[in-house]
């Protein structure tokens, strides 16, 4: 192959990502799927990647069996307050963190199985009017809670026994924090996006606010999904759940914006839009590594490669209905696609 031919082959092979159906989970008693996630679970000296499904009143843990089957092994019942979301903890095994509440999160609980007698346990780690929560590396959770006047940004460390150990507060900005992202490349940096479109940068060690920068869009409530620091600049992947549908730039599901934290100046880097001929507005989604996935108003799931800047796969609704949830596995090689009836489909992304 000549250099030009090799470049074409490489380029084509990079673009040709596909989603292959691997297995399906059906929760027979489920009323409505709320969330899905994955967690490493160790038992009898053997650790495997398990799937966690959330319905309004219970959380189930599914272990893999041979021939792409899954077996429900544990179910925690949460009957007092409905489940709102699962909060993945990136480097934690044998522990599931969930957020509960009515319209907004009122409680964060840890779910585990006792190593002594095998009984299922729950531990309350935080209560309050919680606006945003994110699982951080090194067994930590960050949350924003309270009203604008008494907003509390708190880091909670979680023990192996499912208890909250140390607590540390970060300086609150004068704007409501709606989402957080750890900054890859800088161990002690955290960012958050606010209700009036600012990006706040904290030093996790000292709790200081280092910078508050405007995201630069007219519509409110941008959500940060991923942030990394490179060459002295801060790159942030954002979604805009309240973006208008008739935008001239093709109504992108995600955008990447680059900030200079020294000057607070920023500029757009890339839009992640649907290929021509497809339509649909961003409903919800997740970013992991260089992969971004979103459920669109059309009921389709779209996947983008953030490095290539391209939509690499589309998953239209199947015979059972529209997609309502999309999550990446602990690694970004597996995609979990959920429907309202509680069905979860596992796809290999390669």
């Amino acid at each position: 192959l000549t250099a030009e031919e090799l470049a074409v082959v490489l380029s084509d092979s990079l673009r040709a990502r596909s989603l292959q159906l691997a297995s399906k989970l059906k929760n027979p008693s489920s009323s409505c799927a709320v969330d899905v996630s994955t967690v490493w679970w160790e038992s009898a000296g053997f650790t495997e990647l398990c799937i966690v499904t959330a319905c309004e009143t219970f959380i189930s843990l599914w272990k893999p069996l041979a021939s792409s089957q899954w077996r429900k092994v544990y179910t925690w019942h949460l009957t007092e307050i409905p489940v709102i979301q699962i909060v993945p903890l990136p480097d934690v095994s044998n522990l599931v963190c969930v957020a509960l509440g009515d319209l907004e999160i009122g409680e964060i609980r840890l779910l585990l199985c006792s190593s002594e007698d095998g009984s299922l346990k729950q531990s309350l780690v935080k209560t309050g009017n919680i606006k945003a929560v994110l699982g951080l590396t090194n067994r930590r959770l960050v949350s924003s809670s309270g009203t604008l006047q008494d907003q509390q940004i708190e880091i909670i460390s979680v023990s192996e026994a499912g208890r909250s150990n140390e607590r540390q507060t970060l300086m609150p900005p004068e704007e409501t924090i709606l989402a957080f992202a750890e900054v890859e490349g800088i161990r002690d940096a955290l960012v958050g996006t606010t209700a009036v479109n600012s990006l706040v940068v904290w030093n996790l060690k000292t709790g200081q606010i280092l910078k508050k920068m405007h995201v630069g869009y007219s519509y409110p409530a941008s959500i940060c999904h991923r942030a990394y620091s490179d060459s002295g600049l801060l790159f942030v992947v954002l979604s805009h759940p309240h973006a208008k549908e008739n935008e001239s730039c093709g109504n992108p599901a995600f955008r990447m914006r680059v900030f200079n934290p020294k000057t607070a100046r920023s500029t757009g880097v890339m839009f992640f839009s649907l290929p021509p001929g497809h339509s649909g507005r961003y409903l919800e989604g997740e970013v992991k590594g260089v992969s971004a996935a979103a459920v669109l108003t059309s009921g389709t799931i779209a996947v983008w490669d953030l490095f290539l800047g391209q939509c690499t796969a589309l998953l239209p609704p199947n015979a059972d209905g529209n997609w309502s949830l999309v999550r990446w596995s602990v690694t970004d090689s597996c995609l979990l696609a959920g429907q309202k009836d509680g069905s979860v489909y596992v796809y290999h992304y390669s």
Binding site: I186, D188, A189, V201, N203, T206, Q208, I209, L210, K211, S229, S231, G232, L233, L234, V258, F259, N260, P261, K262, T263, R265, S266, T267
Partner: peptide
């Protein structure tokens, strides 16, 4: 540091802002 539309860039922005920001 280099100059661009984003202004002067510092590879040590995190440490520098941590020193400058109020405790």
């Amino acid at each position: 540091c280099s100059e661009s539309d984003l202004g002067p860039i510092s590879l040590n922005w995190f440490e520098e802002l941590s020193t400058e920001a109020p405790p």
